[in-house]
Design a protein around this nucleic acid. Structure first.
Length: 412
RNA sequence: CGGGGAGUAGCGCAGUUUGGCUAGCGCGUUUGGUUCGGGACCAAAAGGUCGACGGUUCAAGUCCGUCCUCCCCGACCA
């Protein structure tokens, strides 16, 4: 992709409204733009990042054997009255009446809809267990949206749901999801912690939260860096496991898994016939990841004074080619040739703008592509181009004809 | 929803205290020129119902009232 054709709009200064690091950088790097408070549009760079995260999530979910579906976002209010969560959700749920007088809402989450779906399909213990997941937009009328994508009124979530015949089977699926979550967050370049948590409005028996440490986090936990013990609290007593000192940190919640039990299957009558012929409610679990929030979390953990430093799998591009002077014939030729060759294998962005070197360097660091290839007159005089890593600015000088191989070697 | 702050050009701001002529500055944008390895320089230009409505006044960005929007702290969430 050519920069000049890619609808990238960077900002020299962050809008006053943005306070947190990730929010500022997302605006400055041209990832998102606000429509109204808590509602954002994704620009090309932001959308590419979002899709990369979605793909990681999708791959790891598929590996667990879960099936991807897409549930309706527009939901009948009566389903929520049946489950008993209508009042709990209260004003958070966006409700309205259509022209026929039907009472509808925009889904803040999907336990009700999925339970309704599965109950109408699954009859027998022979069909269980079932794990379904989706990546979808959720709507919540948050009292106070904040920090850009961190807490938004319209956001993208991966939600998975398991249906089992008994607790033992649920435990297996819960564990499977736990492991999948660890893989997902690792691939996202996050250092995360997990902790047992409150079930809150979801209800259920047991739950585990996944969190990343960040200054702009909304929750406080105490954490033991020795044994990874963590708990939602502000009182820094000794670690109950290893007696080391605990550290109080602020975190962003990026995922939450729940053993729901029969809360929804009972209220919505999602039953199956067991081997012995008795009719039983399905045992459920649900597993959420804040996909759009992950973008913010990843930035909070991967940036420096110059901008974002994308982990390789997340980055909107694998390589950014920076020809320092487009008016210089050889620079343009070498850049074009390299672009063509690299594009066969990687996602490549070529900064073809007729801008000064300084501007290109600043923008490059801001948007955070992990590998920069700098092509300039000086280097070309000696037949060299520079391969620069965004994270540590380390420079590798290579011969023009060996650039392809060197880059392939670094990216792998 | 309780508490605090802010709305002036695309972005960042000054001006409002003490009302006064045609509302300024930096960046960005457009045109021309000189530059060209870390956000260049010179010249010219475009761009504003000063958040909205109402009021006070000879005169309102500035004073008064109502409303809207955005941000921050709190409770809640992925």
């Amino acid at each position: 992709m050519f920069w000049s054709e890619s609808f990238i709009y960077t900002l020299k200064e962050a809008p006053e409204a943005a306070e947190s690091v990730s929010h500022k950088l997302m605006l400055r790097a041209g990832l998102i733009r606000m429509l109204v408070a808590g509602v954002y549009s994704y620009l090309p760079l932001g959308f590419k990042v979002l899709k990369n995260i979605e793909n990681i999530v999708r791959e790891e979910m598929d590996k667990t054997g879960a099936c991807e579906i897409l549930l309706a976002a527009l939901q009948p209010e009566e389903l929520w009255i049946k489950s008993g969560r209508d009042e709990q959700m209260g004003e958070t749920m966006i409700r309205f009446t259509d022209r026929k007088g039907r009472k509808l809402c925009l889904g803040p989450t999907h336990e009700e809809v999925i339970t309704e779906l599965v109950k109408n399909q699954v009859r027998s213990y022979r069909e269980l267990p079932v794990i379904l997941y989706q990546i979808q937009t959720k709507y919540r009328d948050e009292l106070r949206p904040r920090f850009g994508l961190m807490r938004a009124c319209e956001f993208i979530m991966k939600d998975a749901y398991s249906f089992d015949i008994d607790e033992a089977s649920l435990d297996k699926n819960y564990k499977k999801m736990f492991i999948a979550y660890e893989k997902i967050f690792k691939r996202c370049g996050l250092s995360f912690i997990s902790t047992k948590a409150d079930c809150g409005v979801m209800g259920g028996d047991e739950s585990c939260e996944f969190m990343v440490e960040a200054l702009s986090g909304e929750d406080k936990v105490i954490y033991c860096s020795d044994c990874n013990f963590a708990q939602a609290s502000t009182e820094t007593k000794k670690c109950p496991n290893c007696k080391k000192d605990l550290k109080g940190i602020t975190v962003i919640e990026i995922g939450h898994i729940f053993k729901l039990g029969t809360k929804y299957s009972k209220s919505l009558e999602a039953n199956f016939t067991d081997a012995d012929g008795t009719i039983k409610p399905m045992i459920m679990g649900c597993y959420g990841i804040g996909v759009s929030r992950l973008i913010a979390a990843i930035i909070e953990q991967n940036y420096d004074k110059d901008g974002i430093i994308w982990p390789r799998e997340i980055s909107p591009y694998d390589v950014l080619i920076i020809p320092l002077n487009m008016a210089h014939r050889q620079t343009k030729e070498v850049s074009g040739e390299l672009y063509k060759n690299l594009s066969a294998k990687f996602n490549v962005l070529l900064d073809d703008r007729d801008e000064r070197a300084g501007i290109k360097f600043k923008d490059a660091d801001l948007i955070g592509v992990p590998l920069k290839v700098v092509i300039g007159e000086k280097g070309l005089e000696n037949g060299k181009i520079e391969i620069v890593k965004r994270r540590d600015n380390s420079v590798l000088l290579v011969d023009v004809d060996k650039a392809m191989a060197a880059i392939k070697d670094i990216i792998k």
